[in-house]
């Protein structure tokens, strides 16, 4: 369950990165549709956080330690909202580029999360 979610979230994050990267390439700021995309990816990370905590309380232990696992879960939830606000403050192509960079960082965090859980 958690592994499937991790893969789904990283794919969604990479898609968001490509989409916003394309917007930056076309010299456009982030639009409403981009924010809906960011909301969807954030929702996935929230679901992942909940599933992760449920797994922990269910007695499953992450391979590389609970602290690290929870820290990464929280980090993944915060990543996209942070860049979303930054792109609101920067209404240019660079706002879109920031969101794209944020989504790439999220994808990397997901890979690390997969390793920490012991995939």
């Amino acid at each position: 369950m958690l592994d499937a979610l991790t893969i789904a979230t990283s794919v969604a994050a990479l898609a968001l990165a490509a989409w916003c990267g394309f917007a930056a390439f076309r010299d456009q700021p982030t639009k409403d549709w981009h924010f809906i995309g960011m909301a969807v990816v954030t929702l996935l990370t929230v679901v992942q956080l909940i599933v992760g905590i449920v797994q922990l309380t269910g007695g499953n232990d992450p391979e590389q330690g609970t602290t690290l696992f929870v820290a990464y879960l929280i980090g993944t939830v915060c990543a996209i909202p942070a860049v979303a606000f930054m792109s609101l403050a920067e209404r240019s192509r660079w706002g879109s580029a920031t969101v794209a960079a944020g989504a790439v960082v999220l994808a990397v965090l997901e890979v690390r999360l997969y390793d920490i859980w012991g995939g």
């Binding site: 930054m86 920067e90 660079w94 920031t98």
Partner: peptide, 26 residues
Amino acid sequence: LIGGPGMLLVWLYGVMVVGAVSRSAY
């Protein structure tokens, strides 16, 4: 300093802060 490309820099530096601080603290 955070207009245009500066915003992207702030994000990347922010990520490095969170990464390095939490890693070294841990």
